[in-house]
Design a protein around this nucleic acid. Structure first.
Lengths: 199, 199, 199, 199
DNA sequence: GATGAATGAGTATTCATTCAT
DNA sequence: TATGAATGAATACTCATTCAT
């Protein structure tokens, strides 16, 4: 209970901790959180089962770090898109590009995304981390738009709503894909409607 | 090996099966699927552990029935809203009402919704059932709008997109609720943008 | 504990009891005793699970009756062979014929024989019944030989030994069958050696 | 899923594995395979239930090792008898000695023999192991006789038949023992008849 | 006699976590 | 730091037997 988790400072140790996180990433993506056990993670990372508890409080703790790795891998590229906006903001282009970008990202990371997102509902920490991430994205993107000369009283609300809708579309596009719907047409509708609130 | 699951026809038995499903509903909502064991379900239902396997193939089978119960409880009322639409369709009113309705439903059933939805990613059946449900909703609502005199080539795409956006908003409203955002304003934006694509 | 088992006298009831025994016979032969449950037996017999306990004390009790049925089906024909012996006894013919007969019987009933014999070691009753049967066979066959004019002080010992050896040969022939052995030659040796002690 | 069973190399571990096997040996002998559960084995061995599955794939896997232990304990001494044969072979003495030896072995190990042999019919592996053992015995004994100067075209068949008859006699002597039979006389008959085919 | 729903003790196996070395 | 053997609580599922109807 009163055990302390090592905070590795030596290079070799940092390496080992990262190897465990990456092993968790791969395994959670492939088999899901509940079907991956700590022994598998240790083996995949090439370390002993015991040492895992030298770097992580428990299995869930690994999950949290895997989540951070995921965030870095997946969301950072999206932020970059918005950081180069020029005034005046071309919403037609920006929204269309963002949708494609998010869809691509979803597709490339579908496995780990599914594994992690499924825990949102049962795991407070995971949920908080995802929420925090959303906050950050909303604020950063809003900031970028302001730097691009866009002004609005409801800026944060607009950005937030737009982001959620785009992600939801990407999510559905990747996982559900109903046959009887035209997704290109849906994308046009999505872009049109978001453009409407921004103009 | 070739054991079959009872298909109860007597009133007493149907009762007992329902008691088990309702016990599962309560427990899954409170503790989640993975933290609920069959002994707890039996006890909550006031039956023996053995008889559970007289009515259900396995624990997952209970989940499927709980899901059906949830669908009936939660989605049927929403359908009803759309079945009384009068021509011409008043989108302003309809969208606003639908958003409030979905938010209310989410709030009242948040626990079970979370428990079930979290399985979407790891359980084929649950995922299929949710997808099927979306199909049905889209088609039924589209049908209602046509009966209300609304015409559009992209009707299904519009309805589908609108539904997802509304649900996503309700979801966020219920679970995430970022402090720095004005949800009333966000609702206005949502309604405005959806109204835009319908008009 | 103080429950009594019905001793059916009505035709319909005897029928039902026999149907259960025969169902047990088929199922034990196909799946073995431990892999057959009482529900399966009841279903195969076309009766309810409850009534099984009207005719049998417990599952083992069914086994005992199945064993009796087996004995009647399998051993009675063998007895008949010996009951028509003419003086003087032609051991060459008799032994050769007996070996073939027992091998055939073993082959035709291998499944149920295996299922029952496997219980000899763990079930006192089954073991006693098999032993009793051996007694009876030894005494009846010895009797037949005496009626056929054969005299010996050690008659019972000879008959018993011969019977066991023949059965053992048949058993091996049916179940083990080693590739590198000539069974026809082994049969010749068996007959020769048994003939030797009888002459 | 892809879990592997430890293959212990350290002395302490080998010890522990052996303790489990020996615990299984004792318990299977006392209560039989089906009446012994893994918790009992672990307790008898003085280890935790979990570690049992570190050394054995499943309960059946323990059985296989118990079988090997049994084979070593019981059959090796018998082989030794035959390895010191001098030419010319004195069958009178050899057969008589072998019968007594097998009877003694049976008696000393009757419980475990019964427990294991009862599985011959329901367990492929156990059956195969017993058959393999018979092969080995037949071939080794035949080899010894040849080294002792005995020649015969049907050597293997003779040895095999003799071995089975001796074992069968020992088995009956140990388990069945009919009161009305003289076992010393039966032994004489057995030896006489086997001697006959060897000379 | 007959039904079949109900009981609940019994069991193999897994796995997060600990600890002796 | 590191190992990996060891722990033991936890759990889904079975089935002989009983009993209300």
């Amino acid at each position: 209970m009163a055990e302390t988790v090592r905070n590795p400072k030596q290079v070799r140790s940092i390496d080992k901790k990262n190897r465990i996180i990456e092993a968790g990433y791969r395994l959670f993506a492939r088999d899901g959180y509940y079907s991956t056990n700590t022994a598998m993670i240790a083996k995949e990372a090439g370390v002993s089962t015991g040492i895992v508890y030298g770097y992580f409080r428990d299995k869930r703790d690994i999950l949290v770090e895997v989540l951070n790795l995921y965030v870095n891998k997946v969301f950072e590229p999206i932020f970059e898109t918005f950081e180069n906006i020029q005034a005046p903001v071309d919403f037609d282009y920006l929204l269309s590009y963002a949708v494609d970008d998010v869809v691509r990202t979803h597709r490339d990371n579908s496995a780990i995304h599914a594994a992690l997102h499924s825990l949102t509902y049962s795991d407070e920490i995971v949920n908080a981390r995802f929420t925090e991430l959303e906050n950050e994205m909303t604020l950063r993107v809003a900031d970028c738009l302001e730097k691009g000369g866009y002004r609005s009283d409801d800026l944060k609300e607009k950005v937030h709503l737009a982001m959620r809708c785009i992600q939801d579309y990407a999510h559905e596009y990747t996982y559900d894909h109903h046959d009887y719907l035209s997704y290109p047409r849906m994308k046009e509708l999505l872009v049109a409607m978001l453009k409407h609130i921004f103009e």
